[in-house]
Design a protein around this nucleic acid. Structure first.
Lengths: 128, 128
DNA sequence: TGATGGTAGATGTAAATGCATCTAATATCG
DNA sequence: CGATATTAGATGCATTTACATCTACCATCA
């Protein structure tokens, strides 16, 4: 819990210092960018990011307001929506990644050997 | 990050189901209860819990409003305060612990062997 | 001593979150 | 078919958090 607190604070600070939005934006944009058609249903984003439904709904509002994603109708089910990443969204994600990857290397990579990182991942994935 | 998300959600849910306040309250009460004189300076709580200063200040407001802690003057430095845990605070912490410990056992203990838990702790403490 | 800078903690305001609930659409089953 | 239940996502409202700044006090040093 504490390690996560420290690391997240450091990474968020790096993003902010580079004039970037919060990490949660990255997570959503990344899930969209790597998805099959660059679009996902809100509930799929929810599952992948573990964001709460009502938080995600509003986060999508913000992303949409910034032109990073677009909501489209989901024809097969009138209740559903597609969330589609835009070119601007894709570009922002890439720019965020250059900051993020450096941050990961600085705060995490240099403190863990490959095998150690794998060990942590193996043990922690039991909780998922 | 995800493991923490899942675990914290589960633990918070257990606390809430038992009619208890959030885990952050526990953390503060616990730091106070185990401190030398059952009192700490706000900045000490901040260091131990990693809560942000402005969040802690308001969390202490809430705890004080509930009669769980008391703010007292810190004679040696007029800028400082003592935060003192009250009997009610101590009792609440104990009641929270009975829920919390069960929650830890349910969600964590049964999924990790002692040595595995120690491995995680050893690796993650590099970030602290 | 008194100007300057730093520290401890509080707080106004804006933004985000949590909770409960709502709307609209679909699924189920008599 | 029609009533009822369920699901996807949005939203009103209260609480909490973030950011910036403030107040009060202390430390330093010319």
């Amino acid at each position: 819990m504490r390690a996560r607190e420290r690391l997240l604070a450091a990474i968020e600070a790096d993003l902010k210092a580079a004039g970037m939005p919060p990490l949660a934006w990255y997570d959503v944009l990344w899930e969209l960018a790597r998805s099959h058609d660059c679009k996902l249903r809100p509930y799929e984003i929810e599952e992948r990011t573990l964001l709460a439904q009502y938080n995600l709904s509003r986060l999508i509002d913000r992303l949409e307001r910034e032109g990073l994603v677009r909501r489209e109708v989901f024809a097969k089910d009138g209740r559903g929506r597609w969330v589609v990443i835009t070119d601007a969204g894709r570009r922002l994600r890439e720019r965020m990644w250059t900051v993020y990857v450096r941050s990961i290397e600085t705060h995490i990579g240099c403190k863990l050997a490959e095998t150690e990182a794998k060990t942590i991942a193996r043990l922690l994935e039991r909780f998922l």
